[in-house]
Simulated scan of single mutants.
Amino acid sequence: MNVSLAQRVFLLAYSPEKRRLLSRRHLGSTLQAAAMQDLREQGLIADDDGKVRATAARGATPGCDLAAALLTRIVASDRARPWRHWIKKGDRGATGLVGDQLKRERVIRFESHRFLGIVPGHRMLLRQPQLRGAATQAMWDTLKPVRPVARISSRDAALTAMAYEGELRVVLGGRERRAAKGRVRELEAGLGPVPDALRRVVRDRNST
C-alpha cells in the first residue's frame, strides 16, 4: 500500500510494547506538518513569502485523508496564512483522522480490555507490523552519518525530520536526539519551510 508521510509518523509514535500511541504532546501538529510536507512534495501547495499558497494543481485529490482535509481548508481560506497556522489549526483532530484511515485500510485494529480487570479501555494492535518496522528502519538508516545526504530520498528525510522536530521520544530518546541534531539539520536543508515551522510550533507550546 502507498503509505503517506502522516501515516508513517503515526506508526512511529506507536509502541508495540504498550500497544498504544506515545509521545502524544505534539503528535497532532506533527501529523499535520507531515501532511503539509506531502502536499508540498505533490505540488499542491507552495511557499509564497512565508505563507502557504494552493497551486493550480490543487484539483488533485491526496490519498491521505488528513492531507485532503488540510488542502480543502487551505483552498477555502480567505487569505494566505503562515505554515505554522496550518500546522496548529485543527491539530487535535489529526490523530483520530489518521488512525481512522489506518483502521479502515486494515493497518491497525482496536480491541477492548479491562485494566486491572476493572477499568475498561482499548488496545491498538498492528495488523501490518512490517509497516512500522519499515518506517523505523528508514529513520535510523537516514541518521547514519556514512550515508551521503544527497542519496537519501526526500520522503525518508522528511520522516526523520518530523520524528525529530515533533519530539517523538518513543523512537528518538534524549541521547539519540542530541546525537542526531546536526544530521537532522543537514536533512532539513532540502525540505523547505515545513520542518522549521513545526519546530517553532513545538517550541512555542513547550514554552507555555
Rank of each mutant, 00 (worst) to 15 (best):
L159W: 07
D47Y: 13
S154E: 14
S77C: 09
R169N: 11
D48V: 05
G121F: 10
D49M: 03
D78E: 13
A134Q: 14
H26N: 10
A6I: 08
W140S: 07
D196E: 14
S15H: 05
G133L: 08
K89Y: 12
L102H: 03
G96P: 00
V75Y: 02
R53Q: 15
L191K: 05
G173S: 10
A60F: 03
L70S: 06
V146Y: 09
W140L: 11
W83S: 01
R81Q: 11
W83K: 03
S4C: 09
Q42L: 14
V170R: 04
G117H: 08
R183E: 05
P145I: 10
G43F: 04
A189F: 10
T72G: 15
G90H: 12
A161Y: 10
Q42M: 14
R169I: 02
V75A: 12
W86Q: 07
R25T: 13
L187A: 08
L31Y: 10
L116N: 08
E176P: 00
D48G: 03
L12I: 00
K181V: 02
R109F: 11
R175G: 00
A158Y: 02
A69Q: 15
A46C: 09
K144S: 14
K89Q: 13
L70A: 09
M1Y: 11
A67W: 07
Q101L: 07
K51W: 02
K103N: 08
A33I: 01
D100Q: 07
W140D: 08
Q128K: 13
A135F: 12
I118K: 13
R177E: 08
D78H: 05
R109D: 13
R185Y: 08
L66E: 09
A6T: 07
D78Y: 03
G166N: 07
L172M: 15
G190E: 05
N206A: 14
V9H: 03
P145D: 11
T30E: 02
T142N: 10
G133C: 03
Q37S: 15
V201S: 01
V98A: 06
M139Q: 06
L159N: 03
F110P: 01
V201G: 01
H113E: 09
R205D: 09
M139A: 12
R151D: 14
L191E: 04
A138W: 04
L12T: 03
S154P: 01
T208Y: 13
L131R: 14
S4Y: 12
N206T: 01
L27G: 08
V194L: 02
R169T: 13
R177D: 01
V202C: 01
A134Y: 03
R25S: 11
G50A: 02
L198Q: 02
L116M: 12
R203S: 09
R40M: 14
C64A: 15
R114F: 15
L125I: 11
